[in-house]
Design a protein around this nucleic acid. Sequence first.
RNA 1: GCUUACGUGGCUCAGUGGUAGAGCACUCCCUUGGUAAGGGAGAGGUCGUGGGUUCAAUUCCCACCGUAAGCUCCA
Length: 582
Amino acid sequence: MPKFDIDTIRHTSAHLMAQAIERLWPDSHVQFGVGPVIDNGFYYDIDMDHRLTDEDLKKIEKLMKAIIKEKIPVERIVMQRDEAIRFFQDKGQTLKVELIEAIPEGDEITCYKQGDFIDLCRGPHVENTSQLPMSFKLLHTAGAYWRGDSNNQMLQRIYAASFADRNELKDYLTFLQEAKKRDHRKLGKELELFHFETVAPGSPFFMPKGATVYNELVDFMRRIYHRFGYDEVITPQILDSDLWHTSGHYAHYKENMYFSNIDEREYAVKPMNCPCHMLMFKHYKYSYRDLPLRYADFGRLHRYEKAGALGGLTRVRTFCQDDAHIFIDIDGIEKEIVNLMEMFFVCYNHFKFPNIKVNLSTRPEKKAGDDATWDKAENALRSALEKSGHDYAIKEGDGAFYGPKIDVEISDALGRYYQLGTIQLDFQLPERFDLKYTNAEGNDERPVVIHRALLGSLERFFGVYLEHIAGAFPFWLAPEQAVIVPVNNEQHLEYANDLCQKWMSKGFRIRVDDRNETMGYKTRQIQKAKVPFMLVIGDREMEEKTVSIRAYGERSSESLSIEELNAKFDELSAQKMPDALR
RNA sequence: GCUUACGUGGCUCAGUGGUAGAGCACUCCCUUGGUAAGGGAGAGGUCGUGGGUUCAAUUCCCACCGUAAGCUCCA
């Protein structure tokens, strides 16, 4: 039996699905768009009168398997352009006709035929449907614009998982389930971290436990800032529209901003901190000796995101970034980027993300500023990346119109990638705000601005990280670090409270569970809340001056003296500072 | 914004054209219990909102709001 690569299998499977759909709904004006191979499977875009339901997916799946058993040969057919257009036109496949018209003159046009089904396709395919494995599963339907253009009609898309064998499919489905269990929205509710209310779409309410973690994250960034020479500033929330005209946000970003009219002036809620920092830089006269000047800002931002774009903490309408703007002279960029890359790795390594990808995005076609400046900036970024010694990919033409950028992506415990951090060079804002500093010769010079964020938005990071750790926070971040359980409230409560007070006064987040419940019950509650430690105190512990400690996820407990436990807490608590900076 | 689906007590969910149920959580009582649910009782919902159809709607239809998946968007 010939071996086919997985893409070939997925590709033919997509045709198989189309064939099944055509057979099942012959009178539904079925026509097909594109049906490409994707990670873990394939999809096909379909236009038809019938609205596909989940039950339909099962029917299609069943028929697909039947067609595999029919052992239909798959033939490759070369057509002339006119012939192909006429053929698909006759079949009412106007979408395919559009695709053929888009094929460059002179390119060979091929179709693949399996029994009663013919599809325009570059191939390759398997030779017979019997060579396809049964290890696929139609996952869900979704809408998708024809050719990805929102002005076009919307097609029905079926997503399918497809693998070479049953085990791979099973692993993938397990992965999906695991990911579902870790969904930050689910964990957020279960662990009482945050939730949403309909009165404020896309705006999380962080409960005390969530707020504790949130604030610890901010403090963590502050500790890093302290070491890397940043100064934190606090800036207004609502500013006159004039400012947004100056910054260019009014022209480019108005649709995403919240406005209010008061005293016959138009104000906007800030969607970004940058303009405020530009004003701050402008407010005093700075010298080249003051550069680089680094303003950090945890200001709350509001952006109106389209309703359909919202999702959990990953896309919200109110959020805060670990935002900073660096004012620098163009020759200082390289050194600063090296510095920034170190900061990134210090930060991400601390959260134990297994992989970090770095992308350099260069000038786009539509850009502001002259080529000489772009050359200088891109070279500085490239050379800084070389110096910091990390692999990076180049995304040609993917930069912002105002400057090149570096994006940093991390993968989580399940191997999913997220873009968190970003470093963006900006030649535009200094122009617009007419920023100047005095150079060594005593002349005015235009600084360059670097926008940068490591975690990105705190909200998004919170969500991604929560899924990464499946809700089990490390000691330094945990909203509750330990819960003390007295075996008997009559005899052990007072001692438990004493210990608790001592640890609380050292700043630990610890409490005594003195509810009138059994130990089994409390153990279950504490484990479900993923509290790092449960401390049990009974006769034995009181007598021996020890504590019975059980770590989250452990099956058993161990006995530690109070001194040992103090040392353990201190050590774990020290992890709030990254190893590299300790 | 678009397509589809969903919206029932704090949470997870069942159910029905004749105005509702479970488990957990909550309150009280009993139980003072050595590491993942001790026992009992009780309170709590005009079934997202507004219209429509109907003798009657939480259930059917429409609109709106919200949520989810995907598309588009993310200067």
